[in-house]
Amino acid sequence: MASEPQGSLTEYITHHLHHLKPVQVSEGNFWSVHVDSLTVSLVLGVLFCLWFWTKARKATSGVPSKGQAFVEIVLEFVDGQVKDVFHGDRSFLGPLALTVFVWVFLMNAMDLLPVDLMPWITHQFGIGHFRAVPTADLNLTFAMSITVLLLVIFYSFKAKGFGGFTHELFTAPFGAHPALWLPNFVLNIVELVAKPVSLSMRLFGNMYAGELVFMLIAGLFSAGSWILYGMGVIGYAVWGIFHILIISIQAFIFMVLTIVYISMAHDHH
């Protein structure tokens, strides 16, 4: 780590776990924004939009170019997942799932960059802290899962009407007896809240832990022994290859659960 004077592993890691916050009023201040998460996620989001948009604009029903074919393969994979779970008009749920899948995958893929690369680059411009993986930031995972929760609530109302959904909140799953209204309601709220919490914590936990393991392995590089250095190189490669699997699976799980939650909102009785 360039900015630290040959510190301990703990210092190295804690330094790495600091977000870039220009407004350092005090720890826990609501308006101190994580500029690194926002920048990386927005850049990747725009990248996703431009990439798919250029292919979509030139999309031909004839023989597709290789780029178009790739985009179509991704889209049909996502569409197939949606089709399996949700039987209805896919003109919103399809693109939602595609956005979730590609965006989360791209953000997870930032984990495959060498841990010190982005901080080193930003350090050249005098910025000390930079975390490159937005999905290892609870703000982002909760932002996504809360948006999904809002969509779930919206579709619950849309599919069942205001009265229907409210009725269901108080009468399912135990029964319509007035004494059971409160337990029903509490249980339904717990169920509703559990969805975004599990969704975001799963993604965050996986990415945060993956990042930590990368940092621990990277700590071996400066441990001062050639054997440890070699072990670090091998360990970094092995964990990196394994991590390709994790980032894909996490993106896939986030997408599938989003589809499942929203189609459940549609289907509930």
Binding site: N29, W31, V33, H34, S37, N139, L140, F142, A143, M144
Partner: peptide, 8 residues
């Protein structure tokens, strides 16, 4: 913090 709103 406010990052959440921005990301949403």
């Amino acid at each position: 913090n406010a990052t959440l709103v921005g990301e949403m």
